[in-house]
Amino acid sequence: MEEIVNKIAESSLEVFDLEDYFPGEHVVELDISQWLLEGFILKEKEFRQQLKDFDWSIYQDKYVGITCSTDAILPAWTFALIAVYLKPIVLKVIHGTKEQVVEEWYKDILAKTDYSPFQDKPVILKGCSKKEVPQSVYTLAIQKLMPFARSIMFGEACSAVPLYKRTR
């Protein structure tokens, strides 16, 4: 009987897995409706006092998206004022949802990543995620990999879809 050889394991194929960079608990959403009267009405004096009394330390070293889950009509300065309280303790604050904050996290991480290990190699951009990696991040990742990789496929080694091949 002939020995089964794992040709994928023996190849120079490299896997780029975006789940390796998933932020987990580092990304949170802050819903400001908690400080609005009945979740809809901003009373400035009370709002400012609630922000002043709030324990902001729960957001220490996090990426925070400020959002409002209700259809409240808010003054333009509302989100900016909350950012004033967050900025000294967070890694980053944006006006947006948790998914938008995850995208920001990936933008920052992928901008700092060293892609030289993928130089002139075939790469698989792993696509079967257990975690919710936003689709936009795959678009960003392939752009970061293209200057380095010889070729890029999407998916798993057993069923990869070719996306890019460097021309000679």
Rank of each mutant, 00 (worst) to 15 (best):
K112S: 12
Y85I: 05
A149W: 03
K98V: 08
F40V: 13
E29P: 06
E3A: 01
W77R: 10
E2Q: 00
T70G: 13
L37K: 14
A160M: 09
K45I: 02
F54I: 03
K107W: 01
E46Y: 07
L91S: 07
E99N: 15
E38G: 07
S136V: 08
V93I: 12
D61Q: 12
G96P: 11
S151A: 14
F79L: 11
I82G: 02
A72F: 08
L140K: 07
K107Y: 01
K87I: 15
P23S: 07
Q143C: 02
N6W: 00
E46K: 13
W105K: 02
K126E: 11
R166T: 11
D55K: 13
P75R: 05
A157P: 10
C68G: 07
I124N: 01
S116R: 07
R166M: 14
V64G: 09
S57K: 15
I8H: 02
A9F: 04
G96Y: 12
E29Q: 14
T67S: 14
T113L: 10
F148Y: 15
E38I: 06
M153S: 10
T78F: 09
I66K: 04
I142G: 10
D120I: 00
H26S: 15
L125S: 02
A149Q: 07
I73N: 01
A141L: 01
E14W: 00
Y115H: 06
H95G: 05
F22G: 08
Y138L: 11
E38Y: 08
P122F: 03
F54Y: 15
Q34R: 15
V102K: 03
F16H: 00
V15I: 15
F118R: 05
E99L: 09
K144W: 00
A76R: 10
E156P: 08
F79K: 10
K112L: 13
V123C: 09
A80S: 14
L74I: 02
T167D: 07
P23Q: 02
K45W: 01
L140N: 00
D61I: 04
E10D: 03
S129F: 11
I94G: 09
Q100N: 11
Y63P: 04
K144C: 05
L81H: 12
Y85Q: 14
V137C: 01
D114W: 00
F118G: 10
T78K: 06
F16A: 00
Y85A: 10
V101N: 04
E38H: 13
E14Y: 05
K165V: 11
M1F: 01
C68H: 09
A160Y: 03
D17Y: 07
A80F: 10
F54N: 07
Q119H: 13
I152G: 11
T113D: 02
S151T: 13
